[in-house]
Design a protein around this nucleic acid. Sequence first.
DNA 1: ACTTTGTTTGACTAATGTTGACTATTATTA
DNA 2: TAATAATAGTCAACATTAGTCAAACAAAGT
Lengths: 155, 155
Amino acid sequence: MQGQNISDIIEKYLKKILAESEQVEISRSEIAQLFNVVPSQINYVMKTRFTIQNGYIVESKRGGGGYIRIEKVNLLDDVDVLDSLIETIGDSISQREGLAIVQTLYNNEVVNRREANLILASIDKQTLAADNRMQENSFRARILIGILNHLRYES
Amino acid sequence: MQGQNISDIIEKYLKKILAESEQVEISRSEIAQLFNVVPSQINYVMKTRFTIQNGYIVESKRGGGGYIRIEKVNLLDDVDVLDSLIETIGDSISQREGLAIVQTLYNNEVVNRREANLILASIDKQTLAADNRMQENSFRARILIGILNHLRYES
DNA sequence: ACTTTGTTTGACTAATGTTGACTATTATTA
DNA sequence: TAATAATAGTCAACATTAGTCAAACAAAGT
């Protein structure tokens, strides 16, 4: 039997619920209590077992009536393309290279023209207007990767 | 599932009314009594859920016959609203406020759902993952303004 | 055995919501 | 016009959640 540690058990518990419904909304402290672990262990489970690569989106809110919501999403077919693009980007990318990435997305029909232009607006040199080139390229990389990760699934 | 805290409930109550008519006029104390909260909680709800970023304008009057009036505004009809939206962004904006703005763009059919999610991905806290909060909010502001200006001159 | 990777824990931090005392404004009444 | 009543606004303390991070511990590789 594999999966005997408590994180695996919590993971199974939640995925069983998610097999029935599209999403779960939990109270971190309640789940923690239910499995007799500290609350932050729930964060660990989220971070290691409910990632976007696995097809899950996790959202949360603090304060009174706070929650953690896990949503199961359908991963698309182009995931491999997206992965390799993300790899290409790394942690820094120029505007010219960014344009090429968006072009690729458009050519592969991952995004349409309007969406492509929207992305370009967000990674535009003038938009980012960073203090220095390194910072600008760094944020451009993060934004593009965030968008690519988003394109993994249909919402 | 969602909306366990009383502020969310009050928000929903008011938005239900606003779905029918363009505006509501309430008595702060009456609403407070209706939901069994202190009057100032109504101000909290206004400040966090009925801002211009959310697409609402709140006006009020004190004294006898005082009121709080919530008005739904339309981005398309009102060019000034877009401008004031950009103005409220300034050079820094939180993820929460950013979400409110994108939601408003969607509600006003300036963008569709897919585009809205694309924008949200680009201004997401995790996407930006800046060294500090100020930097994160600063770049979020630049991106949003860049996108808003793009949308303005696009259609 | 040693090293690397994964898990568990708890102290500290951050975000959001609730409450009430005090203040400000407007209308009504003396 | 001055006093009073009837509203709404502000602000800071407190309450209620979730998040981060690094240390301790455990398991798996080499």
